[in-house]
């Protein structure tokens, strides 16, 4: 049975990954043998400078979902490379690094620093191995396999997000593609009129894949105080509540572009994940449900495997985009 999937020149052992910002708990808690079974790991979005995050309250529980406004609390790209990346590499699963710049220069700065990671690794390898043993970074487990652009960032000329503007999306993707030594995935926001157009713009910019969806802008109000319950005023809605909308958007994008799609939005189990794959997703990511059931990504993987056995499917590619119309 073949579960492997490909994005650009990178092969993943299976299509199951995690959404950025939902996996990152301490090493002392996770069982390495189990985490190693995942297709890829996406750490929390990294910015150029460290960010302390938003004031509390940062999350609110909603019907089958949650609103979050964490504010991308992270140690910045230098802190990430020094303190976090070595531990993520130890897991031994390809890493997709989610990054966000508050302007194009910051995006470029982050990518240059990530490019340097491979350069220094290649140097180390050359010193320790003879040149014939050298294998490109992308084939080695545990290395950086791709970069995911979190396009839910400010679009400076307009008062929108980059992911809400076709031109801004195409430009930033193009700029990063020119310099990145890694495949580039564009992560789209669902807070748009036509997500198919934005996906096409990312593809035109040279994106190697599209991932979607990010969260929906959402609010919750305390009727006693008549104030927002969220410290940041608004937040992003995620979880099973948004799954049917995410599924429709994934299918729409799959029909619009030729590059692979990574689908996410409220996936809780294998059946949910299979819906996304049938709708056209090459990979699927578990997000919010990691907070409820840390085993959810493995349950998804096991469930997909059983589905393939039961339906005598030899290759997972037979499932991807197999929706009958």
């Amino acid at each position: 049975m073949n579960l492997s999937v490909k994005i650009a020149n990178v092969t993943f052992q299976n299509p199951v990954t995690v959404a950025s910002g939902t996996f990152g708990h301490a090493e002392k808690y996770y069982n390495l043998k189990e985490v190693r079974k995942l297709g890829a790991i996406v750490p929390k979005t990294v910015t150029f400078y460290p960010q302390v995050g938003n004031p509390p309250v940062r999350i609110w529980e909603t019907p089958s979902g949650m609103i979050n406004a964490i504010g991308i609390e992270n140690p910045g790209i230098d802190g990430f490379i020094q303190a976090k990346l070595p531990n993520f590499k130890k897991i031994g699963v390809p890493l997709i690094i989610s990054i966000l710049g508050h302007n194009p220069q910051e995006f470029v700065g982050i990518v240059e620093k990530l490019n340097n990671v491979i350069l220094s690794e290649a140097k180390d390898l050359k010193e320790s191995l003879d040149s014939s043993a050298y294998r490109p970074q992308n084939d080695r487990m545990g290395g950086i396999a791709a970069i995911e652009l979190n396009l839910s960032c400010p679009n400076l000329q307009h008062k929108t997000l980059v992911a809400q503007d076709t031109q801004a999306t195409q430009e930033i993707v193009k700029q990063i593609k020119t310099i990145s030594k890694f495949p580039v995935i564009a992560k789209l926001s669902p807070n748009v009129t036509d997500i198919g157009e934005i996906a096409l713009a990312a593809e035109a910019g040279g994106a190697d894949a599209i991932s979607l969806i990010n969260t929906f802008t959402a609010m919750s109000i305390d009727i006693k105080t008549r104030q927002s319950r969220i410290g940041n005023f608004t937040g992003g809605l995620s979880g099973p509540a948004i799954r049917p909308i995410a599924l429709a958007m994934v299918h729409q994008v799959y029909k619009s572009v030729k590059i692979p799609v990574i689908g996410m939005g409220g996936i809780a189990n294998a059946d949910d994940a299979l819906e996304f794959m049938i709708a056209g997703a090459t990979m699927v990511a578990v997000g919010t449900m990691n907070f409820v059931n840390p085993r959810a990504p493995l349950d998804v993987l096991e469930g997909i495997t059983s589905y393939m056995k039961e339906n005598k499917i030899a290759d997972i590619k037979e499932i991807i985009g197999s929706l009958k119309e």
Partner: peptide
Amino acid sequence: EIMACGLGACLGCSIE
């Protein structure tokens, strides 16, 4: 504080 993951992953239950 309101808590989601309980594991230090989501950073949702931060206090000052």
